[in-house]
Design a binder for these strands. Structure first.
Lengths: 182, 182
DNA sequence: GTAAAATAGTTGCAGCTTAAAATATCGGAT
DNA sequence: ATCCGATATTTTAAGCTGCAACTATTTTAC
């Protein structure tokens, strides 16, 4: 609750980034291409994501986070521990707790105590959950194909390649922060 | 609270899409490229977005939605009506109400009654808000440039072009739904 | 002029999200 | 045997988000 302007003067604490920042500072007002690129990518991703959320709700009365969680479980034989799940979904632990609770309530997944380690909880799809997910996943894939239908084969390949480069670029820009585990 | 599996059997209600869906249904298991493309794009966008959210919080003790709202206001001389704001931000009315409330509380924007139409509320940046935003925006642009730094000039152009194509493809796939106003 | 429809915002509710603090358990060192 | 640090999960507080129902005001139709 302290969103006042003085926070602007908080200490700069990313010494790792001083190089990049001072470099760009030399020629201010020159980030236009990158900014346009980012905004356009964000617009595309949001357009698709919003549409998927809407369709998941209307067609299956579910949400994208639930779908993502089930997608992770679907790839496993015996389910996952909550920690592993939260790592793969790249969301916080507390987030998973709530999602799991609601999905269990819906009967789509089940929580199993782990006898070896009483702290851990393993979750897996129920038969019903697996059945439901396969229907949703098939339709989801169709939606995606539909969205990309206007792009030619070669354009898709080009985009795939560009995105690989972008991912590497972003990862290298970010490394040194948030990736303490590396 | 009705996320049970039976919802899967809800009526199919997108007759507009039957063509696209039946078309892909003819060759099931062939959406792999599109799916990979989508997942990679989502990964990139999320990576960047999460990093931006984190930096906005750590550097300026603020959030992306607040930043976006201020960015919209910054482009205007006399502020915007709430409805116009929610349309430009592509979020719901109720959402804007809360965001505005918190930003007013922080002293960054102000609400002004509209004498011509007593239903309407106009919001604009305060002097403080404009000052704070200019600092944040400059740093934000530096961050973006940093993330895209690993991409060459030509690669950026290629990506920009691919994304234009994608946006058109998605819009054409979506049109007929959600765009009732057209 | 008045009723009905349209428009501008707000409110309530449910869910998603994170960070930080709390709880419980495990494993190793003494 | 016990204490301590690491690990697994839950809880809590604050905020973001959409939808649906609601209030207030303006405009339109008659």
């Amino acid at each position: 609750m302290k969103q006042n302007g003085t926070a602007v003067h908080a200490d700069l604490q990313f010494s790792d980034h001083v190089d990049a920042e001072s470099k760009v500072a030399e020629r201010p007002e020159d980030h236009k291409t990158e900014l346009r690129l980012w905004l356009r990518m964000l617009a595309c991703a949001n357009l698709i994501e919003v549409e998927i959320r809407q369709r998941l709700r209307e067609r299956f009365d579910t949400t994208l986070p639930r779908f993502d969680l089930m997608a992770q479980l679907e790839r496993t034989e015996d389910g996952l521990l909550l920690g592993e799940l939260s790592r793969r979904m790249m969301v916080s632990n507390g987030n998973v707790t709530g999602l799991v609770e609601r999905l269990v309530h819906s009967g789509l997944i089940e929580r199993n105590a782990n006898e070896a380690d009483r702290r851990a909880v393993r979750v897996r799809l129920t038969d019903e959950g697996r059945r439901v997910f396969s229907v949703m996943a098939a339709e989801h894939a169709d939606w995606i194909a539909e969205f990309f239908d206007g792009l030619g084969e070669d354009e898709q390949e080009a985009l795939l390649t560009s995105l690989r480069g972008l991912k590497l670029s972003v990862l290298s820009a970010i490394s040194g922060r948030a990736d303490r585990k590396v």
